[in-house]
Amino acid sequence: MLEGNRVSRISVRGFAVASATAVTTVGAVVGVASGSTQGGAAEAAEPTAADATLLADISAGNQTQAQTASLTEQADAQSTAADAAAKKAAEEAARKQAAKDAAEKKAAAAKKAAEEKAAKERAESLKAARSASRTDFPQQASYTIAEVQSMARQMMPSDQFQCFSNIVDHESGWNYQASNPSSGAYGLVQALPGSKMASAGADWKTNPATQIKWGLNYMNSRYDSPCGAWEFWQANHWY
């Protein structure tokens, strides 16, 4: 009987690999054939069911491990793809920024070159206008304001006359004999002292053209132009 039971259990374990239901059935049949009691058949069936449960747990565990491995692989693949996309986006952004910076630098250089060219042309134009300005006028015993202003218009570029006129209006009111007894300033542009204008002509006291010539030279050398001098005058009320 003991030998018979041992054979029955081995046989049942073999069938348990295929099916838990088959294990139970075959175990019962073998038990009856070998003269086992109902209790013996139950005894043979109990380990068979346990073995089947163990196999099922192992199978489920293997499936879980396989699913986990699959999910891990998918996550790794997605992470790799995301890193590649981020790298590509960063490279594209860097390329666009570099192109933008280069374009802005080129535009700034072109603007600077244009401004320098315009400044040079303006300076040459002013120089040419000054060279062409009239400085010789017949001397008179006296001059009206209109005559003095006419001289000034002929001695400077047309776009500079208004600035020059603004300064003279404030300094002397176009009186070429205006004198400031407290400071010693004299003439249309109130040179200080008036004797400075001798560099433009010995007749600086009586000739408006000489005073205008000296005043223009002073404004051009110190402020680049009468308009530059007027801009400074507005800020400081002197020049």
Rank of each mutant, 00 (worst) to 15 (best):
E147N: 04
E116K: 14
P181C: 00
D159W: 08
K120I: 07
A94H: 02
K100D: 15
A123S: 12
S182P: 01
Q149S: 09
A146W: 05
A107L: 14
G184N: 00
A82E: 13
D101S: 07
E92V: 09
A178K: 05
Q140R: 11
A123K: 15
D136P: 00
E116T: 04
E124Y: 03
Q162T: 07
F164K: 04
S131C: 07
N180T: 00
Q162Y: 06
K127A: 12
T144L: 08
K88D: 08
A89K: 15
D159F: 07
D136R: 13
R95H: 05
K117L: 11
A110M: 13
C163R: 00
E92G: 08
K117P: 00
S142F: 06
N166M: 09
Q177Y: 01
G184F: 00
E104T: 06
A141Q: 14
A110Q: 14
A84L: 12
S158A: 14
P157G: 09
K112R: 15
K120C: 06
Q154Y: 03
E116C: 06
S125A: 14
V148F: 07
N175L: 05
L126T: 01
E92S: 07
A109M: 11
M156K: 07
Y143V: 02
A109K: 09
K87I: 09
A85K: 13
F161G: 02
S150Y: 08
S133G: 14
A81E: 15
K120W: 02
A98E: 15
R134G: 05
K106W: 01
P138M: 10
A99T: 12
S165T: 01
R122S: 10
E115H: 12
A108S: 06
H170D: 10
N166Q: 14
P138Y: 09
E104P: 04
P181Y: 05
L126Q: 10
K87W: 07
K112H: 10
Q177N: 10
Q149D: 03
K112L: 13
K117N: 05
S172K: 00
K96S: 04
K88S: 14
S179Q: 03
E121H: 02
S183N: 08
V168Y: 00
E171I: 02
A108F: 09
R95Y: 02
Q139G: 13
A86D: 13
Q162P: 04
S79F: 11
A99I: 10
A141C: 03
S182E: 10
D136K: 15
C163S: 12
D136L: 03
K127L: 05
A93P: 06
S150M: 10
A113N: 04
A132S: 13
L126S: 05
M156S: 00
S182Q: 11
T144Y: 08
I167Q: 04
S179A: 03
A108W: 07
S131M: 15
S183M: 02
A110N: 12
H170I: 00
R122C: 01
Q139P: 09
